[in-house]
Design a protein around this nucleic acid. Structure first.
Lengths: 350, 350
DNA sequence: ATTAGCACTCGATTTTAATGAGTGCTAACA
DNA sequence: TGTTAGCACTCATTAAAATCGAGTGCTAAT
């Protein structure tokens, strides 16, 4: 069967109404719309077709219709297409510059949640081009030295290293030189066993220090493993009765708190974006119900967007809410913040 | 009225039963206990007295009795007193050493939550004796230098500083020397305006760099402001019907997620502990219902314990659950982890 | 092709009744 | 005088029944 213009119009009306009310919508309701000069009976017939086509469904016999995942998908795709419709009732939403990256991210998460009334999360940016830039050893205590490792993108890693014997300043200077001359500018792959052995040899009795430093370097470069994620507005889900029931709420809260599933989502979303699926504009992805990469979100929709803070430093933010979320507003909010983060970066550049 | 032995026994029986069932307990139930050779009528009379004295209350006429906050308090104090009763059915609860402090804390939070079936939180340790130990400037890029600041207790703070003109290695060395000779060993109070001005003068055209570094030092020393807190097991609250109702759950989840109230709790609890109120053994504090420092926890009990990771690095962990929580087990669990963290520290020392 | 009309369905809400755990009080008892 | 059996009463909870009404599908008329 074809999706006629009229069917489209009716489907859209159903979804819009359901988004607002959260209640199944009946034929009568639709027929009362001004620009819909049809009787409820006609609407019923069309609805019956739409149901057969899989766009809507009945929670039970003799109830109104609600959108199916397919129906939502139709709506979202359509909405994304004509995005010229600007939503203008945006809250004040200004990202303050923060000297701590973590503070900035927390702030953004909070903004997202409070503006949308859904739950929000944001991941710290992941680095892509991970080359070692710089190593600095310094003596902190008699038997303790501090290694500071700087990776491209100015990501830092600190490590305290205890030594058997006290090291004098001169030795530290030498080790510093040794490490920097050998390792600077290298990526993880380029630091091979041969190189490590060579350096250990040259370090003589201090080879254990070199070993520790190299471990720290490895940690610093693949920092994405312990991907930091910040969330906000988890309690917003209680505003939507369809999510507020105990077992569902518990599951969602758990996902938001334990974060490990979220980090999968981040990887998934980032990699999809990198594959160049930018067709849907500005890298905004929508997962509706069962489209989500994991089960625990099957009653929710997740809208994700990437952001780029500095060259190559990409992170992801997302909104988690009921399927009947206000997709338009959410997309708009995400986009606004995307732009703001972008601007913030540019300012920094100057 | 006096709390006779018999009243005490009955009160304890009521509370114990309520902790298990979560239901109001009636006179008949108590009278059936083997070691309680009294008829339900007698129990009723005693209960009536206990209610008058404020230890128990009726949710409504003709319902059984439940403990009041005062009743819980009585029970907890008593329980804390004879703590020789060891609970032995502890889960495997071994803290793995982690090189990242944050990983360690997350792990502990998770252990607490999974062992108790309540929500858990832990704060990163706060430093008390905050003296500057060491500053290291290094050049990272042409116009960027990195300042690493080490404070007593080996807390680190990094800051990237952009400069107007490029700095040569020699200048950096000089600034390093300048900063370290003047500032080492000083606390926040001791770094006064006079000293700062003096240093800026000596730095000549590079006074702005000195300024930036001093800012970073200030940040590092009062690091307690952005006190990190980790939570786990928030969804456990759904296991207790009296907390699982939407508005209450929402409030609790919110507190756990937004953390700022928790950090007040941390300060409160740490300062109380520092005042030497160690009478209740091992620094374990119990807040029952309205005893809690904030309203949002009025339906919960909060049990807190401090831990000490290294000399002077004290943090706080706590369990948040229903008033009818298993106080004994919770106290035991906290104590076990306290000890483990302690051991971990000692191992590190060797 | 559209629509008015009508019987029918079924979740939700309200009403009513039944249940039973628990109380307070009184009078009898040791 | 403290303890207890007995009884009338209360009231949340549960179950069952009745009612409501939004919504449907189908049919016959336009």
């Amino acid at each position: 069967m074809e999706l006629s213009d009229r069917k489209t119009k009716i489907l859209e009306a159903i979804i819009k109404n359901y988004l607002e009310t959260g209640e199944p919508v009946g034929s009568r309701t639709i027929s009362k719309y001004e620009d819909m000069n049809l009787s409820s009976a006609t609407i019923r017939n069309e609805m019956s077709d739409l149901e057969e086509m899989g766009y809507i469904l009945q929670p039970h016999t003799s109830a109104g219709r609600i959108p199916s995942d397919k129906g939502y998908r139709f709506y979202v795709d359509r909405m994304m297409a004509d995005r010229e419709k600007e939503v203008s009732d945006m809250h004040e939403m200004v990202v303050q510059k923060a000297d701590q990256l973590s503070e900035l991210l927390k702030q953004v998460a909070r903004l997202l949640a409070s503006n949308t009334n859904y739950a929000a999360m944001i991941s710290a940016p992941q680095i892509h081009r991970n080359k070692l830039k710089f190593i600095q050893l310094s003596k902190v205590e008699e038997n303790t030295i501090l290694a500071v490792i700087v990776v491209e993108g100015n990501i830092l890693k600190n490590k305290m290293i205890s030594t058997d014997q006290p090291l004098d300043d001169d030795t530290i200077l030498k080790l510093n030189l040794l490490l920097n001359t050998h390792l600077n500018g290298l990526s993880l792959e380029e630091i091979n066993l041969g190189l490590i052995t060579l350096m250990k040899e040259q370090a003589g009795i201090h080879s254990d220090v070199v070993g520790s430093v190299i471990d720290a370097v490895a940690d610093a470069i693949r920092a994405d493993e312990n991907l930091e994620i910040y969330t906000s507005g988890a309690n917003n889900i209680f505003k939507y009765p369809e999510l507020a029931d105990n077992s569902k709420a518990s599951e969602i809260i758990n996902v938001l708190e334990e974060k490990n599933q979220l980090s999968e989502l981040v990887s998934d979303s980032l990699s999809k974006l990198n594959e160049g699926e930018e067709s849907q504009g500005h890298g905004i992805q929508v997962y509706i119900g069962s489209e989500s990469p994991f089960d625990s979100m099957k009653d929710c929709s997740v809208v994700t967007a990437t952001y780029e803070l500095e060259e190559g430093m990409r992170g992801m933010m997302s909104i988690i809410g009921p399927k009947r979320m206000d997709y338009l507003k959410v997309a708009k909010t995400l986009k606004t913040l995307q732009e703001q983060l972008d601007t913030l970066y540019k300012k920094k550049e100057e």
